[in-house]
Amino acid sequence: MAPAEENTAAEDRDLVERACRGDRVAFQMLVERYQKRVYGIAYGMVYNADDALDISQETFIRVHRYLDSFQGSSSFYTWLYRIVVNLCVDHLRRKSHEATVDYDDTLQHTDTSELQPSAIGDPVRALGDRELGAELERALRQLSPVHRAVLQLREVEGLSYQEMAKVMGCSVGTIMSRLFHARKRMQKLLGGYLEDTTPKEA
């Protein structure tokens, strides 16, 4: 869930101001408040625990470095998420040997046949299946970095389209298009496998 509550934003602003003045404890509180979220985003994009931890660490080093450049016109977490997403995208581009699929965000999409969840079944049961976990990861690896990012920001962090647009530096329309593509692609990639794992009716 996005930490969108007013008091959280006010606390963040206070911590940022104190950290800018060199308050070590305030900076530590900021790091501890967001380290798991930042790691979650990084892991959701790079799928490697060590890389995700390195990226999370680098994210906070950059936060420390640029903290007094933070304007405060946007939320602190939006700014923070932008840094981690950009670092992940850079990381993935460096490792571009991985198969990625990009889509044209401007395309019109009318085929929704791949959004059929009949194969998904009970997600809780399915998630318990290690094989499914591996398939999920394999499918995610085939998404482009920006599609991984929108899925993570929306489904895990619960950001609104507007917030995601700020993080990704694009329009709300582009965010919606990317989300649609990412979901459709995931359904297509997971569909066949999940069909086999769904209990068949007698």
Binding site: Y43, A49, A52, L53, Q116, P117, I120, L127, E155
Partner: peptide, 24 residues
């Protein structure tokens, strides 16, 4: 049905991230 598909995918992604964060 399409809505349930989106729910299921979202749930799977959240669980996957939760487990990864817990392990770290």
């Amino acid at each position: 049905t399409r809505l349930r598909a989106m729910d299921a995918l979202g749930h799977a992604l959240r669980e996957r991230t939760r487990l990864a964060v817990e392990r770290q």
